[in-house]
Design a protein around this nucleic acid. Structure first.
Lengths: 194, 194
DNA sequence: GTCTATATAACGATAGAC
DNA sequence: GTCTATCGTTATATAGAC
């Protein structure tokens, strides 16, 4: 069976997603047009609708994939047992993962309101799972009298917030290396729950 | 001299700003139209251009006023001398100020890319001034051997990031009061620089 | 200072040829 | 699967009457 000329579904969809990610993170979802995405992908606007039913779905797929991939990557790690080591491992993991995906992180934070209610709830649920990873680490540490904190849930959010802030200013060619940054953050986090 | 009917410049401009703030924070700058702002202000779209030369200026005035007001409010405080007390004071101040202005905080973070280069630099400069307030507190504390931290600038950013995170989840009618949240955060911050 | 009306451009999404 | 063409809508911003 002869294959249609110009048919590149397997390559085209990921390409569209990658271009949309880049544009959304630079200009914001609402400011990016379907024509713009299509042009960068070497297509006409109408062709996008072969891959996505509408603009919002491009965004929601990006966000859901990002969160799911984050959780899967964590699960694939071999984790240390000891709570102190595990907490340090979490900080390293979070920083590595997020500094390597600045665009995903940015839109995951900014563009939630452009999702349908359904997709919004999906993201909230995935985000809650990620926060629970840290809460669990803190809970275990408190049980073993290694950590101390007034409120585990709030402390988890505070720590994640602190880590997230990194993405807003860290430059790979700046005055400190990723390794140094990770060490500084690990010290702050460990002291914060001491 | 008879006053033109329907002339309300003094009331109208702040009203437009307040409405725009609300809409921008809900939907994002790019997704809000001048017609939408005008409708909520009881005007026709064209009338907005008596107060602002263009849409971007509505946003930049909001952001610059927000940052300038933050710095002025801090300067008007009577500050404790002792570094430990001053750091706690800063945490209380930051939380109070920002939790009372969720919309300004949101757009100050999200909509920077919609500013002209000039206005963007203005905001960056004001933000730097605010970070310096905290850096100065930490520096003084370190000098007096009350605090210890590897890197003052990064620690300042980490603390501010942690405090900012509060705005993304705190609800006034939630399970913890503002007072409790402030106490939890003060403990975390003090331990983090211990 | 606000209105109505409009210039000019771009938007998301669809239809049908190939 | 991609194209061209287009529908129906909306956008920012301006002009001129009152």
């Amino acid at each position: 069976m002869a294959r249609t000329l110009g048919s590149h579904a397997k390559h085209t969809k990921p390409k569209i997603s990658a271009i949309a990610l880049n544009l959304f993170s630079e200009q914001g979802f609402a400011a990016v047009s379907m024509r713009q995405i299509a042009a960068k992908a070497g297509l006409q606007a109408g062709a996008l609708y072969n891959y996505f039913p509408d603009k919002q779905t491009i965004l929601s797929e990006l966000l859901i994939n990002h969160m799911e991939n984050l959780l899967e990557t964590w699960s694939a790690q071999v984790l240390p047992d000891e709570p102190n080591e595990l907490l340090k491992f979490f900080v390293d993991f979070h920083i590595d993962y997020h500094l390597n995906r600045p665009e995903e992180v940015f839109i995951a934070y900014m563009e939630l309101r452009n999702l349908s209610d359904d997709n919004f709830r999906k993201i909230e649920k995935l985000r809650g799972k990620y926060e629970l990873i840290l809460s669990k680490i803190l809970t275990d540490g408190v049980k073993e009298d290694l950590f101390s904190c007034k409120d585990i849930k709030i402390t988890s959010l505070a720590i994640i917030g602190m880590l997230k802030e990194l993405n807003t200013w860290y430059k790979k060619d700046g005055r400190v290396s990723v390794l140094e940054v990770k060490n500084i953050y690990k010290e702050i986090v460990l002291k914060a729950v001491s």
